[in-house]
Each structure stands twice: as C-alpha cells, then as structure tokens.
Nucleic acid binder design. Sequence first.
RNA 1: GCCUGGAUGGCGGAAUUGGUAGACGCAAGGGACUUAAAAUCCCUCGGUCGCAAGGCCAUGCCGGUUCGAUUCCGGCUCCAGGCACCA
Length: 790
Amino acid sequence: MTEYLPSQLEPKWQAEWDKNNAYHIPDPQIPQSPDSHKYYALVMFPYPSGNLHMGHVRNYAIGDVVARFKRMQGFDVLHPIGWDSFGMPAENAAIARNVQPDEWTSQCIARMTEQLKRLGISYDWDREVTTCKEDYYKWTQWLFLKFFNKGLAYRKQATVNWCPTCQTVLANEQAKEDKCWRCGTQVDEKPLEQWFLKITQYADRLLQDIDKLSGWPESVKTMQRNWIGKSEGLEIKFKLKTPNTELIIYTTRPDTVFGVTYMVMAPEHPMVDELTRGTEFETGVKAFREKVKHETQNERAESTGKEGAFIGAYAINPANNEEIPIWISDYVLMNYGTGAVMAVPMHDERDAEFAKVHNLPVSDAPLSNEIGAELVKRGIAKWKTNFKLRDWLISRQRYWGAPIPIVYCDKCGTVPVPEKDLPVRLPKNIKFTGTGGSPIKQALDFVNTTCPKCGGPAKRETDTMDTFICSSWYFYRYCDAKNASAPFAKDKVDHWMPVDQYIGGIEHAILHLLYSRFFAKVLKDEGLISTDEPFTNLLTQGMVVKDGAKMSKSKGNVVDPDLIIEKYGADTARLFILFAAPPEKELEWSDKGVEGSYRFLNRVWRLATENIQETSDKIQENTKSQIQRSKPLERKLHQTIKAVTEDIERFSFNTAIARMMELTNYLYEIKDDVSFIHHSDFVLRHLLILLSPFAPHMTEELWQMLGNKDSIHKQPWPKFDPELVKEDEITIVIQVNGKLRDSILVSANASEEEIKQKALANEKAKAFIDGKEIVKTILVPKKLVNIVVK
RNA sequence: GCCUGGAUGGCGGAAUUGGUAGACGCAAGGGACUUAAAAUCCCUCGGUCGCAAGGCCAUGCCGGUUCGAUUCCGGCUCCAGGCACCA
C-alpha cells in the first residue's frame, strides 16, 4: 500500500496545473453564444503584507471550493486574484528597513504568490492585477478624471491628525488615544485643502438599490442603510432673545417641540462666537472648546452627553413662547444636520442625561402631531431630508498611492492632467524618514511641472489617492486585465459582471462595499459598464482566532500557514479550515483539530489504495452471477451526494465535510462485504469527486491511481436519484404534552391514522396518559405525534 | 456611545421552515494489535438521581407566546466586527 505523502504529491500536481495553465479562462466570444453560462467567483484581493495569514487561507479556500464546484457543474468560471498593493505598511517598511516601497512590495508579492500556489487554489494567474503598477494606476487616475470632469471630485478644507513633533500627518490608526504612535506627542487637528468624491450625490440611489441585493446578508444591508442614514425631518428656526438673531436646528421629532426645555449647539458652531463675544461666558466657552478640541471624531461620537457649558443666551420655543437656555456640548456634531439641536429630555435619552447632570428643566408636555405642519405654515420651518453619509475624503498626504492627476497653475487654476499624459508616475528614490510630511514633496522635479493648459510653470498635486479607490474597480480590470488602451473593454466587463459570488471579511461590510457600489453607479452613468450593482451574492466570512483572540504578532498566537502545509499538506489545511466552523462565523484555530482532518484524508486514502489492490482479486473469487445491487449502499451514496451538493450551495462546508466523513465511516463498516466489493470502484469515484473541491491534490492523485487519465477536476458534478434517497422506514417520535416518551419505526407510506393508533397504543406513552383526559392529538407528518393530556 | 452580529457538552460545532438537542470532529477514559512505541481498530463519553427499568434538569440570564421554543417576542449580561486616514 502506498503511503499518503502530501509533501510529495501536492507540489507535483501544482506544477502540473501551472504547466497546463489549468484554470485559465479565455476571454468570451463576443457576441457570446446564447448557451454560455458564466460564473464570476471573486475573493477580496489581499494587501501584500509579505505573509499569508489564516484569514487569507480561509477566504481563498472558500472561494476555491465555490469555483471548483461551479466549474464541475458546467459553468465558465472566472476566478482571479491580484494585489491591493498601495498603502501605508509599505511606507512604514521603507522607514523601518531603508528600502523603497516598490521593492518591498514586489518582494512581498513574490513570496505570497508562492504561498498561494502552495495552497492549490484554482486561480487564473493570467489575469493577475497589481494596483501599484503603472498599467493599473494609470487607469485609477483615468477614472479619477472621469469623476472630476463629471463634477464629482472637488476640493475643500478638512482636518487631518497632525503630529507637531514628527511634522507629519497621521492616520487614525497611528493616532490611538490621541498620541502619535512614534513619539507619543499629543496629536493636533490641522486643516488642509483636500480632495473629496461626491458620494452624497448618490446617497438616495445607494440606499434604494440595497433592496435589489437579495443575495446579500441582511445584516450587511442594514449596516449600509444605517450608514447612509437617511432621515426625514424638519429644520426649525428658533428666535433668540438676542435681537435679530435666530438659530436653526434639525429634528426628526417635530412632534416633541412642546417638550423642548433647552438647546444644544456643537462647540465649534460659528454662532457660538457671536453670542458669547464680550460676555462673561466667553472664557468658559473657550475653555470647553479647548478641552474637546483634541477629541477625535470617534471620541466625539462616543460622548455620553454629560459635558457641556451654558453660553448665556436664550431662545424662544416657537410652540409655547417659553424662554429656554442655550448650551454647547460635544454630543452635538457640527457636520450633521445644522450643528444644533432642540433638546427634549422627556423623549430623548441623551437629552435626559444631559438635563440631569446640568439640572435643566424637563417638560412632560404632550406630543403634537400637527405642530410640524403649523410651524411650516408660519414660515419658520421647512421639511428637510438629511443623510449621515458624508462625502468621501480621498486625499492622502502619503507617497505610496496613486498620485492625484491634477496640476495647479497660478494662471489657469486647478487643471486636470490630460489623458495622453497618464500615468502621472510616482517619483522614485525617495528618502523615507517618517517626518516632514508627504515624502513626495522632496521630489522637486515631480512637484515642479508645466501647466497642461498654458504651458507656464505649475505645481503638481502631491497628495495620493485613498487605496479604497484602487479596490473599487479591480474586479472590472480582471475581466480585461491586459488592456493597454482602456481600463477595460465594455463588452468583456458586460460578459462577466456582475460578480456572482463575492467572498471576503465582514470588516469590509460598509466602506469597501459601499465605495464599490458607488463606483459602479458612476461608471454606469458614464456608459462604461451596464450594471450598477457589482456583487450579486455576498458571503462575509468571520475571523480566524486563537485562544479567543485575533491572531496577531503582539499576542504571539499567530499560526503560520506554511508550517501547517509543510507538516500536513495544503489539502488538510483547507479541509480543517472549512470544517472547523461555518464560514460566516469566527473560527477558533485548533492544532489538534488539524490532525483530525489529516486523519480523515488518510482514511480516504487507505480505503482507496487498499481497494485498488484488492478489488480485482476479490471479484474473481466471487462469480459474476453473485453481483447484486446493494440498496443500503446506494441509498447512503445518493443521500451523501444530495446533502453535500445542497450544503455547498448554501455554503455549509462544515456539514458537507461531515457528510463525507459519515459516508467514509459507513464504507469502512461494510468494506469486507460482497456488496461493497462489487460497487467499490463506483462508490469511491463518487466520494473522490465530492471531495475534490476541498482536497484537490489528494483526490487528483487517487483519481489517477484508479486508472483515470483525465483530471478529476474536469468531471461533471454527480447527480443524485431522488428515488434512491428515500428511506423505507421512518422514525416517528411520540410525545406526551410535548415531552419525548418513545419513538417508533413505521413504514414510509403508513397512513396518518395508522401512526396515530400506534402512538396511542404505545406502552411508554400509556404510562403518562392513563388516568388523564386526552385533550387533543397533534400529528406532524413524518416527524411526530404529540398527545396532549390534562 | 451609536450601528450590526454572536452565546448550545471539557472544546469546535449540528439541528435548512417552531417538532427526537448534541450529527461530524477534537480531547479524555477503557480495550485490541505490538517485544515496545507510533500508526490503526473497537467501546464509553451533557449533568444528576437510580442496582436497573427509567426519571428529572439542561441551548448566556429573566420573563412571555405555543400542544411543543436552541429557533418567535420583550427585557438584560457578556463577547466580537464597524464607526469614515489599517486594509
């Protein structure tokens, strides 16, 4: 008997698949034949950090099972991979190791490519996409210009986290708890002119079209709806006691206006200055502002609404003409609504909390559904739709990103770089120190340029684009990855899009998925593509954790996929990761569990190899006339085919694997019976085909050993016979008052009356019925009889 | 704080639409084989009472709906993801 040696057979098959370009899917014939059926299986492309982690393995193992399964069902499957390769870590590596980000990135990509290939994922490597390469970011810039020309890209002032010591911009991640991660200095907010994309212009469409996404998890759709945060409300002008001044607030609850007992403004509201200038409250207000100035947006949103200051001004409640005090507090945000609210302690928890802490009055005035319309009639209010969604800030004061293709000219102003001049190349050989702002500013021959309009001296934009822009369109590029004259050909994208199944981490539920939906809508409006929802079905996978915590270097609980592959093989790694938990749930890593998956593959291996050696001898011992059908074996096989197929279709890979384990256990039980010996080849072929999407190397090896010349991965997915699946006898549970008392075996075609009689006559049930009155009997077909007694 | 999820044996999980709670696997204990070990194979395995038959309890906590609730509803607790410059 041959031993199962994954370290030998896996590289062999990987080399074979590589050589034959086995998973390349050619471009479609355009016009396409009517009977072609495409399937686009997409996994979220990785950031090339240099090391594949278990989260990647999980993502790509799931994607590969789906791709292989669909291929065997006869679909033309597009299953591509690429690299989301711009971003901060490369720049940090440059600072820490004195390398150039592009070198560091290509080393990481080379290493991770090797790791991916060792997993045996069926990617079409011919369509590999790398966002930091010129042939990709040229088109990212091209798309930015589309947005710019459509009026969807604009500049306005926004603040960044600024470290005064390092003299550099910090990402939120680098400014945890308001301290610079390098030097610990208190982080400031610094205003800068930055580029935005007008995603708010698409807010209503992005919201409405969520209803079309029937293949998305409800939770993700709800998160997106809440993120867009559409609310219908009223903007109401409150007259102030100060003559000729008024304060406009926004409320979704105009019916509570009789209960308003005070007002609250955001500390940075421009009217706060006007109202306090020269008063005794001026210093108090300034002190409060100083205090909240260092709070990040997150901390502002986390505010419990306990802190605030009275500004000495009063407003008049338009509903009852009462004078009410005006306060400032950090729980009111300047960038939502009008930056001021009317406070109703009776009906709002935060208002109540604030009122309690600051001893403000509470009114139990009744709600009035009519007052909103009345205020509108009086001309002091108007209906207003607000969104929580804000425009997308895409400027990054960093080197390792796609340069924003804009030139600033003293004469002509803001000038887009003409298409023929793309790409605007990132300057090379930059020094990375981590201080002094964006490294690009050092490259004077980049910064200093000529105006594309007037030819005069001009300066380039030195900000680069948010990497979320790169990842908002990569799935179109896969459809036409080598196109040198356009980001993609429309007919190719129209053939493959939308993505039939998108698989990736739940952490992308809002930003990446919302931005990609936004891009789709703009691209469709531009006539570049035909569908405005890019992802038909979405599977959000959970994280891989160990000892209850996310795997991380600092916690020292990282499991290196390479070591697992080395010891047990990729098939075991894939099988375990799919078996240990349903895909959308968190997965607890277990070294012992991996051994269990390895044992299972060994059991299949032994069953098959023993069988190959022994079957021919055994069949000769028994004459052909003795060959008989084995109904239980056929039933078990067809039940397994049915269950595995349905489980894969609903992404229940763990139970699919469990069903294959059950079949294997069953085959071991009967392996010396004549019935198995006569059917073993047939049964084993089916088991191997069912297992092939999960363990592609081992099943291919055994398939060849069984004497097949073609690849197991080109076999059609087996179909089950519904007649053979049926059981002859079914178990009926007998309950008394909903409690299990016994179970009986009845013929599958027994009548309801017959079953009822058997239940009532049941000895164990009788013991609980005797002496009591039977109120009713409930029969659930094929399941149970419940006798209700009193 | 806000939004979205989750919680089932010693552990990972199963129960697809309200109908046998614990499939499958891991760990543990016992046994077989072996000079021995590894590997493999067989048996037991939620708690509790009982010699046994069997009973009772049990799906994070409290309550409700129902003949029947892991599943539906209300109220909590704890954990996780996201919160717009990590990707």
